[in-house]
C-alpha cells in the first residue's frame, strides 16, 4: 500500500497507477475549507463552552482546545477553517443565541 502523499500526484501512465480507486493523499492536500460559502464565528464572550458544536461537527473541523482557568483544566471549541465547509450544523445546534454567528465568505 502506498504511503499517502501531501502533494498532488500526477500519473504519467496507467502503469504507475494503482488498479483501484484508493485514497492517495493526506488531508494536507485536500483542504475542504475552500468549499465554504458561510463562515461560522464563535463569540467567546457568549460561548458557555458546552462543546455541543464540537460534538455535532460532522468533520474534525471544530477542535477541543485545552486551557486553564482558576487552576482548572477546561476545553473550548476552536474552528479549523482549513477544513470547515460551512455546513451550518454548529450554529444550528448551538444552544446560546449569538454564540456562533455567520458571515458570508468574501472572495
Amino acid at each position: 500500500m502506498p504511503k499517502k502523499s501531501k502533494e498532488k500526484i500526477i500519473f504519467k501512465s496507467v502503469k504507475d497507477m494503482p488498479p483501484l480507486a484508493v485514497s492517495l493523499y493526506t488531508m494536507d492536500y485536500n483542504k475542504t475549507g475552500s468549499w465554504r460559502n458561510i463562515r461560522p464565528i464563535i463569540n467567546y464572550e457568549k460561548c458557555i463552552y458546552c462543546m455541543t458544536c464540537w460534538k455535532f461537527c460532522p468533520e474534525p473541523a471544530i477542535k477541543a482546545e485545552k486551557f486553564k482557568e482558576d487552576g482548572k483544566e477546561k476545553y473550548k471549541p476552536v474552528i479549523d477553517y482549513k477544513y470547515c465547509k460551512g455546513c451550518g450544523i454548529c450554529w444550528t445546534e448551538c444552544p446560546v443565541e449569538g454564540a456562533i454567528t455567520t458571515e458570508e465568505e468574501a472572495e
Binding site: K3, L20, V22, S23
Partner: peptide, 9 residues
Amino acid sequence: EPHAFGGLT
C-alpha cells in the same frame, strides 16, 4: 495504514 477505497474519482 488507513485508506479510503472507491472514493470519488
